[in-house]
């Protein structure tokens, strides 16, 4: 949908912008939509005399499908979320970065240099981290919003005014958090209960939409919307009664990473781009635009001061979020069935 627009527009703008025409080389990026500022791509393009091509997607799964359907060898880097990084590595779709190939890798904050999804950062660099929860229009509901009940067992005022992300991974992860059961559980009773809980919740939902998640909240189509924290902050700018929830049961954490893809046609430029994004000033530009958080040392001094006080970006202490897990084939089959039941 909108991703088609954004990618085409961005690509066209870039092609026009790189008016040198005879750029040294190319760099093909496969990226989440509405995430990286145009000026930053132009800066990279100018610094390294590289023509940048940006295509966008609206879900990790859509990206995986495109790569598997033959786009591998077309793109140099992709920007999947943590669990999808490990899937890409497992599927053999990620190339390995030899030690010493990234001169700025030392800029990554220590606690992020050995993540579970890519031990030792052999294939990726951390890009932006954030949370997925939901925003509530406090003009429509004045009660306590910090509970997953708002989404899965909503109060009367909010029934029929809820937008859910059209993304199986995040919805089922949040459902598991709501029920206090482990993700990818293969316990039959727990899976059955999850199926029933979602079936009971669905009549209260207005729509499933990911790429208009921000817009439907800002425009008042819905009063509750599952959303990422950066989008929530931007939605609040258009409608100041919106408030981002940090449910007491927990929320979804994530870390998007830049992955070097297998058979990258411009591997050299891909590495240059990864190094470029590990420079504090550059990654801070992404952070200021997307409103998520980078994990590069020294980026804080380039951050927009508003970020430090922003409610969406500063989760309360004492409650933990969970990372989405990649389920095994057998459990995934049940998850797929639950999802189809939900949308049939």
């Amino acid at each position: 949908m909108k991703k088609l627009l954004t990618s085409t527009a961005a690509a066209t703008a870039l092609l026009m912008g790189a008016s040198g025409a005879q750029a040294e080389g190319k760099l093909a990026i496969y990226h989440w939509f509405e995430y990286i500022p145009q000026e930053l791509l132009e800066k990279f393009s100018a610094e390294h005399d590289v023509e940048v091509i940006l295509d966008t997607y609206d879900s990790n799964e859509a990206m995986l499908a495109t790569l598997k359907a033959g786009a591998i060898g077309t793109y140099d880097v992709a920007v999947p979320t943590d669990y999808m990084v490990s899937i890409l590595i497992g599927e053999g779709l990620a190339d390995e970065v030899a030690s010493g190939e990234l001169k700025n890798i030392g800029n990554v904050k220590e606690s992020f240099t050995d993540p579970a999804y890519d031990p030792g950062l052999k294939h990726s660099i951390p890009y932006q981290g954030g949370t997925t929860s939901f925003s509530v229009d406090t003009a429509e509901y004045s009660g306590d919003i910090n509970s997953t009940d708002i989404v899965f067992n909503p109060p009367e005022e909010l029934k029929g005014k809820i937008n859910i992300l059209d993304s199986q991974g995040e919805v089922l992860a949040l459902a598991a958090v709501h029920m206090g059961i482990p993700q990818c559980s293969n316990d039959r009773e727990q899976l059955k209960a999850m199926n029933e809980m979602l079936q009971a919740a669905k009549p209260h939902w207005a729509s499933f939409n990911s790429d208009t998640a921000k817009e439907v909240l800002a425009a008042g189509d819905v009063a509750v919307g599952m959303i990422f924290n950066g989008f929530a902050a931007k939605a609040r700018e258009s409608r100041d009664t919106l408030q981002y929830a940090f449910p007491k049961q927990g929320w979804v954490n994530w870390m998007d990473s830049v992955v070097l893809l297998k058979d990258a046609p411009n591997r050299e430029n891909a590495l240059k781009f990864m190094d470029f994004l590990l420079e504090p000033e550059n990654i801070a530009a992404v952070t200021n635009y997307a409103r998520y958080r980078d994990v590069v040392k020294g980026s804080e001094e380039f951050h927009d001061p508003a970020l430090a006080e922003e409610p969406e970006g500063n989760p309360p202490a004492g409650i933990e979020g969970v990372f989405v897990q990649a389920c095994d084939a057998e459990t995934q089959a049940v998850y797929d069935k639950i999802w189809t039941n939900l949308k049939k």
């Binding site: 499908a65 937008n163 939902w205 797929d336 999802w339 049939k344």
Partner: peptide, 19 residues
């Protein structure tokens, strides 16, 4: 609102979704 699958979105989901 994509609340209910139509044929087109059901097919799309098989190629682009988690399924």
């Amino acid at each position: 609102g994509a609340k209910n699958f139509m044929i087109g979105s059901l097919i799309e989901e098989q190629f682009k979704g988690n399924a």
